[in-house]
Write a protein that binds this DNA or RNA. Structure first.
Lengths: 147, 147
DNA sequence: CCCTAACTATTAGGCTACCTAAATATGAAC
DNA sequence: GTTCATATTTAGGTAGCCTAATAGTTAGGG
């Protein structure tokens, strides 16, 4: 399964892989003195419009259910989400964001977006355009990865 | 510090941040039944051409020195790198890859690049080009993040 | 010289965010 | 009304970071 791909594609793959690695570090650093960790912000953002069941949260985040439970319990202790049995299926648990959760998301999002925007400011117009054009592609790649 | 950026830049920042989050999961999944973890592969790839000191490795990976030491010790135990005092400066430690380390890097790189290449195959020519154009930009952003 | 300050790496201890396997409880189907 | 499937939690483990403290080495100034 190795000669199957063109050399240029393999090169791009390697470069993409390295970019992913760098991205992991950038994402982590985007969590300064923050009230919310990056993972918590992702979870909260997801349920900010409507509550979801634990399993759905895990699926959307691309993590296993116990990992989602763990995060949710932490957020519940912090008063940022509530957990209530799903009225339609008492096996399931509905997770909803609280007012203070919403406030935390907004402030964290603002601060982080400002941080990122500051980094993006150092780019040339062409670089910004190149980045903007590629982001949907990255999102597409991720979808196809999920299976 | 919030009205400082143009709305489009803020939007891009948000989109970029989400792409980073997706990237974190993709990167993690890129580590199947592998002999090497993603972090180990990055480290080994870095020293595959010439040995480096622990501090340089940490710097290049964007992690702190103790974290690099930890990884290096694991790799040494696995027989993939050697550690020797730097002849020019006995405070420092030269880390070099072993033959079996080189073999591990090659096989892991091949398998992972093939995995990524498979994902990239589903993209159109334009999408591939967009991605290729953006990767250097991402790398640049990361550098400016390092300070 | 030697003493102090600067540097390099390691050790110790801690944390986040994942994971798998097993337990619990509810729902569904025959 | 068992039995099988589904949803979540609990328990225990791991990777990969971090900071603070320690030990050894080098370099510079008096």
């Amino acid at each position: 399964m190795n000669g199957t791909f063109s050399p240029t594609l393999i090169d791009l793959a390697q470069e993409f892989r390295e970019a992913l690695r760098l991205g992991v570090y950038m994402f982590r650093r985007l969590d300064p003195e923050g009230e919310l960790t990056a993972a918590q912000l992702s979870l909260l953002s997801m349920i900010s419009h409507s509550g979801l069941r634990v399993g759905d949260i895990a699926k959307n985040l691309g993590i296993k259910v116990p990992s989602a439970t763990e995060q949710i319990i932490k957020l519940e202790r912090a008063g940022l989400v509530t957990r209530q049995p799903d009225p339609d299926d008492s096996r399931a648990v509905q997770v909803a964001i609280t007012e203070s959760g919403t406030a935390a998301v907004e402030s964290a999002n603002q601060r982080r977006n400002a941080m990122v925007a500051e980094l993006l400011q150092n780019l040339s117009t062409e670089e910004v355009e190149a980045l903007a054009a590629a982001l949907p592609v990255i999102s597409k790649i991720n979808s196809s990865f999920q299976n």
